[in-house]
Amino acid sequence: MDEANRAPQIMVVDDDQDTVVILAHHLRREGFVAIEANSGAQCLKLVHENEVDVILLDLMMPEMDGFEVVKALRDDPMTAEIPIIMITARDDLDARAEGMRLGVSDFLAKPVFRRQLASRVRAQLEVVETARNASAAMDRLEAVRNRPQH
């Protein structure tokens, strides 16, 4: 299957296995491919082994919390542009402000409902597609500008 026809791959990262299973099930019902990770370290490993389009990331996890994972993803040129939707039971302004400062694209409060999840994931996929189209248009414009004049 070529890139244009491949189902978007969404990584679900949460230390609670039940949450991972439920979110992955919701995503599959919406036509996405779900990649499951149970820790920040596993996320950072799997993101290099798969073509991840969006990451759903729990904030409160042991060993490496969601903010630490976001920092690591943003510091890596291979993963810096992947949209991250932070999923948290801690839906306070300080957590949102810190997440936005670090480069989180969106937030969802637990419990997450399927339609809300799907619409937020699709919105992030549209942002990525719009950015790709704009970049391609800029490349074409630059090529036209640099063409030798006769």
Rank of each mutant, 00 (worst) to 15 (best):
M1T: 12
D2K: 03
D2G: 08
R6F: 00
A7H: 09
P8W: 03
Q9H: 12
V12D: 11
T19N: 13
V20S: 09
I22H: 03
H25G: 12
L27D: 12
R28T: 14
R28G: 06
E30P: 00
V33C: 06
A34N: 08
A34F: 06
I35F: 07
G40D: 02
A41S: 13
Q42H: 10
C43E: 04
L46F: 10
E49V: 01
V52D: 01
V54A: 11
L56T: 02
L57K: 09
L59W: 10
P62D: 02
G66A: 08
F67V: 10
D76I: 01
A80K: 09
E81Q: 12
I84A: 05
M86T: 05
I87P: 00
I87F: 00
T88L: 07
A89I: 03
D92R: 13
A95F: 08
R96E: 08
R96V: 03
E98N: 11
M100V: 11
M100P: 00
L102K: 07
G103T: 00
V104A: 10
D106H: 13
F107D: 07
F113V: 11
R120D: 02
R122F: 00
L125I: 04
E126I: 08
E126F: 04
E129M: 12
R132Q: 14
R132I: 01
A137V: 03
A137T: 08
D139N: 07
L141W: 12
A143L: 11
A143F: 04
P148T: 11
H150L: 15
